[in-house]
Amino acid sequence: MLQIESLRFRWPRTAADCIDIDRLDIGPGECVFLHGPSGSGKSTLLGLIAGVLVPDSGEVTLLGERLRTLAPAKRDAIRAARIGYIFQQFNLLPYLSVVENVLLPCRLSAHRAQKARSVSGTVRADAEALLSGMGLDASVWNRTATALSVGQQQRVAAARALIGAPELILADEPTSALDEDRRNAFVELMIGLCTRAGSALVFVSHDLRLATRFDRSIALAEVNRASRPEPDAGFAVHTRAGT
């Protein structure tokens, strides 16, 4: 489903490659745990897979589409239709309600909307089913996203990534802001829902204790020959969007 070949990427105005991966394949519906220390290029790799970053050479092939050769608009359309993305935190738009946040992918991709309808009848019903599946009951559905706890927000983000059953879920350290109990529960829920939807999952974390729950565990430092401290990743400052 996802093939990476001879992938090289260097951030502008840096001296060395950040990503240099010879080969990495992920099968349909496969749940992969990707771990590595800060600065090993995890976020950069996810950016390349999502088609937001363009490699200097090599290929990322998603569902048969070679992302590098596509026009930027096409890459964006593929991301909207085929990929669900979860950030470390602050995933939600503060000016939308919980349900509206979950529905965002359906507004940006007709394909996702249509798939969501085929599962639950209406996109809203699908959003609500996913929120229930993530353990969020109806009392929070119409609240402002920022009124929720961090753990609840991450589960809303997971529901949003899963709506319309995209072929690939990319999760960038989604549990780093959660305490241990919630972390385990979150991972269980994610894997369960991905399996049910048939979505592949690439779950990035530096917390190796989570690895056992996944089909496969990959140490990025082993596949990325350019593994070295990423100049920016450690300083990535996450601000609240739009307040």
Partner: peptide, 18 residues
């Protein structure tokens, strides 16, 4: 600058720079 997070979320959801 305050809204870069908002823009990144939209990008992740498939919004293009356009």
């Amino acid at each position: 600058n305050e809204r870069r997070r908002e823009l990144a979320i939209l990008r992740a959801l498939g919004a293009s720079p356009h």
